[in-house]
Amino acid sequence: MTNEHDDILAGLERLGEADRDATPPGLARTIGGSPPAVRAARGPLRGPVLARIAPWALAAAAVGITATLLLQSTPVPTHDDRAAIEAALDPGWLFGDEFNALDSELTLLARSLDDDTLGTLSLDMIGDDL
């Protein structure tokens, strides 16, 4: 079987290969010294972790934690997987416009396929207007 975009996919694969081939030959050697050697290039770790955190960073973290706690106390809409799966089981869902249901169905479908298959999967069934 063929995919309508086989040639585009092949072109993208070749672009990727060309970009990987453009890697400077010495780059891996430059990086490939031992991990401590690479770490030394960015400066050694100094002192206990807490000692390296500036007071303003600690204050910012405290503000962030407070804000997060406030946000978590506010009810927000959540993705209802159970409803999406139930919707997916209904043949009529295919003609609906509930994006979340469609998205969940696609995810469930994708999880049942291996990645090589996913690589060239044509989703003509859903059209191009998602």
């Binding site: 309508e4 975009h5 585009i8 996919l9 469609l102 998205d103 969940s104 169905e105 696609l106 995810t107 469930l108 479908l109 994708a110 999880r111 996913l118 999967l121 044509s122 989703l123 859903i126 191009d128 998602l130």
Partner: peptide
């Protein structure tokens, strides 16, 4: 979500087709 990525990938291919 995986489904979102697959749909986006397919849409990207279609856009590239239209451009080329």
């Amino acid at each position: 979500p995986l489904g979102t990525l697959l749909a986006r990938h397919h849409r990207s291919l279609a856009k590239l087709r239209a451009m080329l």
